[in-house]
Amino acid sequence: MLLEKAALTSDWMPAFKAVPRDAFVPDRLWPGTAGGNRQGEMIDRNTDPARWWGKVYSDVPLTTQWDDGAHTGTDKGRSPTSSSSMPKMVFSMLDALSVEHGSRVLEIGTGTGWNAALLAYRLGPGNVVTVEVDPAVAEEARRRFTAFGLAPLSVVGDGAQGYADGAPYDRIVATCGVSTVPYAWVEQTRAGAVIVAPWGPPYGGQAIVRLTVGEDGVAMGSFVMSSAFMRLRDQRDTFPPTNAFPGAGSWPSTASRRTTALSPDDMGAWHHMFTLGVQVPDMFCRVEWGEDGAYRLWLLDMGGTSWATADHEPGRTEFEVAEYGPRHLWSEAEAVMSWWRDQGEPRFERYGLTVTPHGQCVWLDTPDNPVPVRLP
Rank of each mutant, 00 (worst) to 15 (best):
M1A: 15
M1H: 15
A7I: 07
M13T: 14
M13E: 15
V25Y: 01
T33D: 11
N37Q: 12
R38I: 02
R45C: 05
S58L: 09
T63K: 06
W66K: 02
T72M: 09
S82V: 08
K88P: 04
M89T: 15
V90K: 05
F91K: 10
M93R: 05
D95P: 04
V99I: 07
G102W: 03
I108R: 07
G113A: 12
G113P: 12
A117Q: 11
G124Y: 12
N127Q: 07
V133S: 05
E139G: 05
F145A: 02
A147C: 09
S154T: 11
A160H: 08
D170L: 03
Q188S: 03
G200F: 05
P201I: 05
G205I: 10
L211F: 04
G217R: 03
G221W: 05
S222M: 15
S226W: 14
S226I: 14
S227L: 05
L232Q: 10
P240C: 10
P241M: 13
T242N: 15
F245K: 08
P246C: 06
G249M: 13
S250M: 15
W251S: 15
W251M: 15
D265P: 07
H272N: 14
M273P: 08
G290H: 00
A294H: 08
L300A: 13
G315C: 01
F319K: 04
V321Y: 06
H328P: 01
L329P: 00
S331V: 12
R341L: 13
Y351F: 10
V355G: 04
Q360Y: 03
V362S: 09
W363Y: 12
P367F: 09
